[in-house]
């Protein structure tokens, strides 16, 4: 959960900003917070338990915003934790079909997507002319898929989760943004969505977290326990 709590970590360590992992150095006086310091070491493990064989419950809730919200999507998602509140195995779950991303006209289409960990994405160079594209990821997952010619494609399976910005090194304005959820227990709220319900969640302890495509509020990190056949009601307060 280390990676996904990037923002939370940021808030917690603001007064002691030297805690950021990139720069383990002694500091004199005041210092700045580095640019988004994506942590790339944490891996999500499936474990040997199966979502399909678990007893399930649900969580539903309302999201309140302390100020005007941008007309941008946000995600409310659950991460399985152990009794000590630490991120544990996320279970084996069904994975949605491969996401196909077009690159026609030097544009990623879709330019935004929420995926589930384990899902495949294929970038298709469907240009009508002989134009090459490159795809690389920055963010929680950093990877270069290389360059491919018109008619070729490049695929990747997301084994980890988090925020990924997708770029083409050949084309300056060719960008996309993905959020890969750690498991299927997430809800995507549109620009004006304020309520959510996540059903079929295996019983147990979770963290409920938020992710915003355009960061404007402090992300939420709250404990939620899912019980068999029950629905937990939560209020998610998004504040600055």
């Amino acid at each position: 959960m280390f990676r996904m709590s990037r923002w939370i970590t940021l808030f917690a360590s603001l007064t002691a900003v030297a805690a950021l992992p990139l720069l383990l150095v002694s500091v004199r006086g005041e210092r700045h917070i580095p640019a988004p310091t994506w942590v790339k070491s944490a891996k999500a493990q499936s474990g040997d338990w199966k979502w399909s064989s678990a007893s399930t419950g649900a969580v539903k809730g309302k999201v309140n915003f302390s100020a005007k919200r941008p007309n941008q999507p946000m995600v409310v998602y659950l991460v399985k934790v152990d009794d000590a509140g630490k991120v544990t195995t996320q279970g084996q779950h069904a994975v949605p079909a491969e996401l196909k991303v077009s690159q026609k006209g030097a544009k990623f289409d879709p330019g935004f997507a929420v995926l589930t960990r384990g899902q495949d994405v294929t970038f298709e160079n469907d240009e009508e002319k002989a134009i090459s594209h490159n795809v690389y990821f920055l963010g929680d997952i950093e990877l270069d898929l290389g360059i491919f010619e018109q008619g070729a494609a490049a695929s990747h399976t997301f084994e980890d989760y988090g925020e990924i910005s997708v770029h083409c090194s050949i084309h300056k304005r060719m960008d996309a943004k993905f959020f890969v959820a750690p498991n299927p227990a997430y809800a995507l709220l549109d620009g004006d969505g304020e309520t959510f319900e996540i059903k079929g969640v295996p019983v147990g302890k979770y963290k409920l977290l938020t992710w915003q495509k355009q960061k404007r509020f402090k992300d939420v990190d709250m404990a939620v326990e899912i019980k068999d056949g029950a629905t937990v009601d939560v209020i998610v307060e998004m504040t600055r």
């Binding site: 030097a106 002319k129 002989a130 134009i131 090459s132 490159n134 090194s169 050949i170 084309h171 300056k172």
Partner: peptide, 11 residues
């Protein structure tokens, strides 16, 4: 190499 979209890249 540059293509019609290639504003500033060299591959």
């Amino acid at each position: 190499r540059e293509d019609e979209h290639g504003e500033y890249s060299i591959t």
